[in-house]
Amino acid sequence: MGNINPSLLHVGSTLGAVFMALMVIFIRLKASARPVTLRKIWIPPLGMSTGFAMFVVPEVRFPWWWAVTAFLIGWFIFAYPLMRSTVFEERDGLIYAQRSKSFAFILLGLLLIRTVLHEFINRYVSIPQSGGLFFILAFGMILHWRVYMYKRYTRMALPKAPIPQPRG
């Protein structure tokens, strides 16, 4: 991996994760003042999907079943708290995400779990591989959360069909 000290890389990745978590909290708090749109739901996972380009580098690669396992853990376990903290409300004919007091704590808790798991996983895989694994885990988490948001949003946004009245 060149001349980069692995411990500096680990500290840098942890600080980067903390910075990203704080940015997500800040952005999420500001976003609750604006209406939700389909575009706002799908841009984060689409933008994040460009991160799969990291797997072009051979040092980041690992077996497929590791990737599937990481994705499923993100999808089924880590997405759940985010889904539980996401509530939509309708105001003036527009749909807004309610501010959740627990969202920041959930995100920081997920970061703490990630850091602890990172320490454990780094004993068995390289730092670039663990970065790739956690990326896939985060992608599974965010994708499931956004699919959930999309379903909730479309349920609220679709015009309500009138209830047919019996004839006669």
Rank of each mutant, 00 (worst) to 15 (best):
R34D: 08
K40I: 08
F135R: 08
G109I: 11
S130T: 09
S100Q: 01
A70I: 04
V68N: 07
I136Y: 08
Q165Y: 02
N3V: 05
A104Y: 04
F71Y: 10
S32H: 05
R28I: 02
L82P: 03
E89A: 15
P162W: 02
M1T: 11
F139W: 02
R155C: 09
F52E: 13
E59N: 12
L137M: 15
V147A: 07
R91L: 09
L107H: 05
R123Q: 12
I73P: 07
L94H: 13
I73D: 05
F134P: 01
W66Q: 12
R167W: 13
F71C: 10
L29P: 05
I41M: 04
G140A: 04
P63N: 13
S32T: 11
M83K: 14
Y153I: 09
Q129E: 03
T50S: 14
L22C: 02
I113K: 01
I77W: 06
A138T: 09
Y153K: 10
S126E: 09
H118P: 00
I25R: 09
L29D: 13
D92F: 07
R39D: 05
R146L: 03
P128F: 03
F52C: 13
L143T: 09
I106S: 14
I106F: 11
L15K: 01
V24W: 09
Y150K: 11
G132P: 00
A31F: 13
W66D: 09
L137D: 07
A161N: 02
L158I: 01
R123A: 06
E119I: 14
I4S: 05
M48L: 12
P166R: 13
